[in-house]
Amino acid sequence: MGGGHIYRIIEKERLSDEIVKIEVEAPLVASKAVSGQFVMIRLREGGERIPLTISGCDPERGTITIIFQEVGKTTLDLGRLKPGDSILNLAGPLGRPPELKRFGTVVCVGGGVGIAPVLFRARVLKELGNRIISIIGARSRDMLILKEEMEEVSDRLYVTTDDGSLGQKGFVTDPLRDVLSDEQVDLVVAIGPIGMMKAVSGVAAEFGVKTAVSLNPIMLDGTGMCGSCRVIVGGEVRFACVDGPEFDGGLVDFDALLLRNRRYLEEEEISLKRARGCESHEKAGSSKAYQELR
């Protein structure tokens, strides 16, 4: 009933152990999407609706790029689809388009899979005449994605890994502090794990610089109806799907978001076990990203 559009995957590439890039046919979404927006997808009948950030779009080909990490059942199943397969439902682009203009110097900070939307933003901001300083981080070398692409778009790029296997050993806030001490920065954009966005917003605030963060609360309809994605920003309840997902990081209550995102840990584990199937039961719940969430 209704709908009937085919959202076909036309390309797929694995960027790391757990991070997958797909290009999906969705002409209407592609003609409208801007950096900072997301889509809601549902893989099949009985599937859940999850938000995925748009990491690029090609209006002429009528496609959008989604780069996601396999953290739960739906993303794991999505990662198993092949070019030619299709997604049952896809709606978007959702979320309030962020302010995109010439700010001056922008520091783009990406952590983990968050590097993907940061690359999209860096490209747009570069095009608009901004000077781009980028800082990207991951737990280790083999988990760091899109390094070359980030190098290409950035006037300067810093890389950090937790274990020091690539770039500087440490956290993205280390080079950020150096950059903010040395340079006149007009805006920081930070997309990544909640802890990272909180830390980055804190450091930037010390230097009086605003941070735009992209929040990832649990969503259900994604269209401003249910309130599942409520977050506290500046002491007020806001809805990430229609008021965000980008907010001023200095005003966001990240701790509350972290707690709210753990609402369904038990259920997620059950789903994940089923998704991984019997033969790899011991692997269930061992996903690194999942461990981090716990």
């Binding site: 009985g46 859940e48 609706r49 059942k73 259900l220 599942s228 309840v237 369904y264």
Partner: peptide, 30 residues
Amino acid sequence: ESLNGIYSANEFLTRVNLMEAHRFPETDTP
């Protein structure tokens, strides 16, 4: 009001009526 376990009626009912959360884990929405 933002504590876990506090739902808007819309979210609570949508999870069940639209997403069939009462059939979890046969369906994916908890």
